[in-house]
Amino acid sequence: ITIHVNGVTYHFDNPEEAEKFAQKMAKTYQLKMEIHNGEFHME
Results as ranks from 00 to 15, higher is better:
residue 24 K to M: 13
residue 1 I to V: 08
residue 31 L to A: 04
residue 43 E to C: 14
residue 9 T to F: 06
residue 35 I to T: 04
residue 30 Q to G: 14
residue 14 N to S: 09
residue 26 A to Q: 10
residue 23 Q to E: 13
residue 21 F to H: 01
residue 18 A to W: 03
residue 30 Q to N: 12
residue 25 M to W: 07
residue 26 A to T: 04
residue 41 H to Q: 04
residue 6 N to G: 09
residue 37 N to Q: 05
residue 7 G to I: 15
residue 15 P to K: 09
residue 29 Y to D: 15
residue 18 A to R: 02
residue 10 Y to E: 00
residue 17 E to P: 01
residue 29 Y to G: 13
residue 38 G to M: 03
residue 12 F to L: 01
residue 17 E to N: 07
residue 25 M to S: 01
residue 32 K to P: 07
residue 39 E to C: 14
residue 22 A to P: 00
residue 40 F to P: 03
residue 29 Y to T: 08
residue 41 H to Y: 15
residue 12 F to R: 00
residue 4 H to V: 06
residue 32 K to C: 15
residue 33 M to T: 05
residue 39 E to N: 05
residue 4 H to Q: 04
residue 15 P to S: 09
residue 2 T to S: 08
residue 20 K to F: 07
residue 30 Q to I: 03
residue 11 H to Y: 10
residue 10 Y to C: 11
residue 39 E to D: 07
residue 22 A to I: 14
residue 38 G to R: 02
residue 43 E to L: 14
residue 22 A to H: 02
residue 39 E to F: 03
residue 28 T to P: 02
residue 2 T to I: 12
residue 5 V to T: 02
residue 43 E to F: 15
residue 43 E to S: 13
residue 30 Q to P: 14
residue 12 F to T: 00
residue 33 M to I: 14
residue 27 K to L: 13
residue 41 H to F: 14
residue 38 G to E: 04
residue 4 H to D: 02
residue 26 A to P: 01
residue 15 P to C: 15
residue 37 N to W: 09
residue 6 N to Q: 12
residue 2 T to A: 08
residue 17 E to D: 09
residue 11 H to D: 04
residue 21 F to D: 00
residue 12 F to S: 00
residue 12 F to K: 00
residue 5 V to W: 11
residue 10 Y to K: 01
residue 15 P to N: 08
residue 29 Y to R: 00
residue 5 V to C: 12
residue 12 F to E: 00
residue 34 E to F: 14
residue 5 V to E: 01
residue 37 N to P: 02
residue 1 I to T: 06
residue 22 A to N: 01
residue 1 I to C: 05
residue 43 E to M: 15
residue 33 M to Y: 11
residue 13 D to G: 09
residue 9 T to I: 11
residue 2 T to V: 09
residue 17 E to Q: 07
residue 28 T to K: 14
residue 13 D to W: 10
residue 24 K to H: 15
residue 20 K to E: 11
residue 21 F to I: 01
residue 8 V to Y: 11
residue 23 Q to T: 11
residue 42 M to P: 04
residue 8 V to F: 12
residue 7 G to R: 05
residue 8 V to D: 10
residue 10 Y to P: 00
residue 21 F to A: 01
residue 34 E to A: 05
residue 29 Y to I: 02
residue 7 G to M: 08
residue 6 N to K: 12
residue 19 E to C: 15
residue 34 E to S: 09
residue 23 Q to M: 10
residue 11 H to S: 08
residue 41 H to E: 03
residue 4 H to Y: 11
residue 20 K to H: 09
residue 19 E to N: 12
residue 43 E to Y: 15
residue 16 E to R: 10
residue 11 H to I: 07
residue 32 K to G: 09
residue 25 M to V: 06
residue 43 E to K: 13
residue 22 A to L: 06
residue 13 D to Y: 12
residue 42 M to Q: 04
residue 23 Q to W: 09
residue 5 V to R: 01
residue 8 V to K: 13
residue 40 F to T: 04
residue 35 I to Y: 12
residue 21 F to P: 00
residue 17 E to A: 10
residue 28 T to W: 15
residue 1 I to G: 02
residue 41 H to N: 02
residue 14 N to C: 14
residue 25 M to I: 07
residue 26 A to Y: 12
residue 31 L to Y: 11
residue 35 I to F: 12
residue 42 M to H: 03
residue 42 M to Y: 08
residue 32 K to F: 13
residue 23 Q to F: 05
residue 21 F to G: 00
residue 16 E to L: 11
residue 34 E to R: 04
residue 40 F to M: 13
residue 20 K to G: 04
residue 7 G to N: 08
residue 19 E to Q: 10
residue 40 F to G: 03
residue 31 L to E: 12
residue 16 E to I: 10
residue 3 I to P: 00
residue 16 E to A: 09
residue 43 E to R: 12
residue 22 A to Y: 07
residue 1 I to Q: 04
residue 15 P to D: 06
residue 18 A to T: 01
residue 42 M to W: 05
residue 42 M to G: 03
residue 14 N to D: 11
residue 35 I to N: 04
residue 36 H to I: 15
residue 18 A to D: 00
residue 38 G to Y: 06
residue 8 V to I: 08
residue 1 I to P: 03
residue 25 M to T: 02
residue 7 G to F: 13
residue 1 I to E: 01
residue 32 K to Q: 14
residue 40 F to Q: 04
residue 43 E to P: 05
residue 6 N to D: 10
residue 41 H to T: 06
residue 24 K to P: 00
residue 42 M to R: 04
residue 23 Q to C: 15
residue 28 T to F: 14
residue 39 E to L: 03
residue 42 M to D: 02
residue 39 E to Y: 05
residue 4 H to S: 02
residue 10 Y to H: 07
residue 14 N to I: 12
residue 14 N to R: 08
residue 10 Y to A: 01
residue 36 H to K: 12
residue 1 I to Y: 09
residue 36 H to P: 02
residue 38 G to H: 06
residue 34 E to V: 15
residue 38 G to N: 06
residue 19 E to S: 08
residue 31 L to Q: 05
residue 13 D to M: 08
residue 10 Y to R: 01
residue 19 E to H: 13
